[in-house]
Amino acid sequence: MLKKIIVLVLLVSLVPVALTFAGGEKEAAAKESSNLMVIVTPDKDNTFFTAEADAAKAKAESLGYETLLAVHGDDPMQESDIIDTAISSNAVAIIIDIANADASPNNLKRATDAGIPVFCMDREINVTGIAKAQLISNNFQGARLGAEYFVELMGEKGNFVELVGKESDTNAGVRSQGFHSIIDQYPDMKMVARETANWSQTEAYSDIESILQANPGINGIICGNDTMALGAQAAIEAAGREDIIVMGFDGNDNVLQSMLQGKIDGTVMQPNALNAEMAVELADTYIKTGSTGMDEEKILNDCFLITPANADQWKGYKKIK
């Protein structure tokens, strides 16, 4: 029995040392061998997110990093799995457009606890101190900018429909609140329908198709993103109602084209390529110096209003003129 206890004590005192030593070696080896930036975005079918992923990837590769692209589909569980993969791959940094403002911080904290710095782009988390930097698209400012233009085009009056994005996505709510913080100040603007079209072009099409049958007296449609605006525009064209004002959000190239053809009336350009590139640059600075060199964790980048007059100045979410 005594012998057993001695062995136990010895083991207890030795094993953590051995573990720590092994851990240290592993960490050092990982730092030498891994050069991997894991880039996480919500969706691989939406050009907004593919442009974001492409911008981050191109910047990371130009700085000499290997990249791994992953999508979480706005699902915190999938995001969690991706974080695990990043940890097991000894990534040097994670560049992420998060799944959900409430659920994602816990996922991200696991990465930072494992020693992997996290840099957020586009969407923000409410908690500070987890991400090394957050490059945020000011969706609320963008929504207000778009709503002001929408109200102006409507002559401050008329019946309108709002198409809302996927409820689980924080930005769907943020944009909707942004729209209303402006439009609701105009008592002659009447919202006749508000539908969730889940960011989807086909859902937007069928929503507007049926709304138009029930409410032919519609003057405008304000959409939480550009894919829904494209669906709405197709539906009003099919109904022969090209007098209806359509406002999008994102700065999708197809919407810019539609605007140049005199169809969709306006959109809001998100600085998402800029956010992605800045996130990677700050990650690179952090990896090399141990600091991002910025005063603040959250850097809010404003959106730009796009009208038919400046729609030709942008391509791939970047200013080209």
Partner: peptide, 23 residues
């Protein structure tokens, strides 16, 4: 728009938590 807020340097986005509160 938000000219009064944006002209005051002591007001920082980071201090108010998120974009809705900032707006």
């Amino acid at each position: 728009q938000t000219a009064i807020r944006d002209s005051l340097d002591f007001i920082r986005f980071t201090d108010v938590g998120n974009q809705l509160q900032f707006a």
